[in-house]
Write a protein that binds this DNA or RNA. Structure first.
Length: 445
RNA sequence: CGGAGCGUAGCGCAGCCUGGUAGCGCACCUGCUUCGGGAGCAGGGGGUCGGAGGUUCGAAUCCUCUCGCUCCGACCA
């Protein structure tokens, strides 16, 4: 993408309403525009990141054997009366009436609707296990939206629901989600720690939240420092192998890690003092096992092998897709701007043309741009007629992990400059070598 | 929802107390110079001062109502 033809409205000054760094940088980097309290438009750069995150979430869900669907944002109140949550949910739920005075709501979550979908089409244990998920906009009418997309009212969320015959099967689904989530967050360059949590309005017995450590986090967290060193890495996990999946979950949940809701000073005191940590975290996902709470209330049953009608065992699982962008920025930035992990960056690399209009420099940038494209890498090429300082400042702000700088001085020696946004270190090399280097970096991402 | 604020050019702000021709910086446009870390000079465009009512010869400024937004707290993905 040529910057001269793009829509990237960066701001030089800090918008006054943005208090935390991710909100500030998202506004300054031209990623989002607030439309009303807690409701945002996504501008091209922000949309690219949002799409990248959705892509990773989709890939990991499908890898785990889960099946994508898409449900409407607007739901009928009747469905929610069946589960009893229409009255239980409170003013956080946005209620709407259509022209026929029918009561509707903008879904804050989808347990009822998915259960309705399930009961309409599944009637035998032979169809189980089944996990359906979607990535869809939700609305929760927060009393006080703040921190940009980290706590908006409208937000994009991946919500998944498992249907199983037995509790053991449902707990395997729970574990499978935990592993798939760990992999999902790692691909985004995040360390997200599963922590024992409270079930809140979803209800249920077993639940973990995934927390990204950040000073601006909304939750106080208590953990054993060794938990942050655990990595899934390249290991392949067979999602159908219960023991293997369970072993990974045990590995990641044995060390102490809890939010303030479930924190226990007594148990925490048993963690060796040098490993004990108290910090803050941003919640980027949560998994629940809740058994037959919704299936019983809504008559979602299957015929068992013994020929009996039994309510299905369920759980639900969420990833805060839009809020993840805020969390990633909170975890990865410096005083000049964002530093995107390669996995989620809007563009893999930026090209800075230091002398726009100079025939040799323009031609070199052009060749570089095409060479990268031939490797499947779409560069953001700053071809504006701006001074070097302005171009560097823009690149630093929007945080592309790699920058290739092309100027007459380097071209005279046959080199361009490749700079890492994260380390700030530069290397001079031929344009061909630069293309090869960037291509190698992104080969496995 | 309790408390505290703010709405003046795209963004950040001054002007309001003490009523009298709407300003500054950045951004934008034109020209010249400059050109490897947010350039300099000169010129220029852009506002029903959030909205409605009222007081007054006269309201951005005073009064009433209203809408929107932000911050602290409680609550929450």
């Amino acid at each position: 993408m040529r910057l001269s033809r793009y829509f990237l409205p960066v701001l030089k000054e800090d918008p006054k309403e943005a208090q935390i760094v991710s909100h500030r940088y998202m506004l300054r980097a031209g990623m989002i525009k607030q439309q009303s309290a807690g409701i945002y438009s996504w501008l091209p750069l922000g949309l690219r990141v949002l799409n990248r995150i959705q892509q990773i979430v989709n890939e990991e869900q499908i890898r785990a054997g889960h099946v994508p669907v898409l449900m409407p944002t607007l739901q009928s109140a009747d469905l929610w009366r069946e589960s009893g949550r229409y009255d239980a949910y409170g003013p956080e739920m946005l209620r709407i009436k259509d022209r026929h005075d029918r009561e509707m709501l903008y879904g804050p979550t989808n347990e009822e609707m998915i259960t309705d979908m399930f009961r309409a089409h599944v009637s035998s244990y032979k169809s189980l296990p089944l996990t359906l998920y979607q990535i869809q906009w939700k609305f929760r009418d927060e009393m006080r939206p703040r921190f940009g997309v980290m706590r908006g009212r409208e937000f994009l969320m991946k919500d998944g629901y498992n249907f199983d015959l037995t509790k053991e099967d449902a707990l395997h689904a729970y574990n499978r989600h935990m592993v798939s989530y760990l992999r999902t967050y790692e691909r985004m360059g995040l360390t997200a720690i599963p922590m024992r949590a409270d079930s809140g309005p979803i209800g249920g017995e077993d639940t973990h939240e995934f927390l990204v450590l950040a000073q601006t986090g909304e939750s106080e967290v208590f953990y054993d420092a060794r938990v942050t060193e655990l990595k899934l890495g390249d290991r392949s996990v067979d999602y159908d192998n219960r023991e293997e999946v369970k072993a990974v979950c045990d590995e990641f949940t044995t060390l102490y890690a809890r939010t303030d809701e479930t924190h226990d000073e007594g148990i925490f005191a048993e963690v060796p003092e040098e490993h004990r940590r108290v910090a803050r975290g941003i919640e980027v996902g949560q998994i629940f096992y809740f058994g037959t709470k919704y299936s019983e209330a809504m008559g979602a049953t299957v015929v068992s092998p013994e020929g009996k009608q039994i309510p299905v065992e369920m759980g639900s699982h969420g990833i805060g897709v839009s809020r993840l962008i805020g969390a990633i920025i909170e975890a990865s930035h410096d005083d000049k701007g964002i530093i995107w992990p390669e996995g989620v960056t809007p563009f893999p690399v930026g090209i800075v043309n230091l002398k726009q209009g100079d025939a040799a420099t323009d031609a070199a940038c052009d060749a570089l741009y095409k060479g990268l494209a031939a490797k499947g890498l779409e560069a953001l090429y700053d071809d504006r007629d701006e001074r070097a300082g302005a171009k560097f400042a823009t690149m630093d702000l929007i945080g592309l992990p790699w920058r290739i700088t092309v100027g007459p001085r380097g071209l005279a020696n046959g080199v361009v400059e490749v700079t890492s946004r994260r380390t700030g270190l530069s290397e001079e090399m031929s344009a061909e070598a630069a293309i090869a280097k960037i291509a190698a970096i992104y080969e496995n991402i």
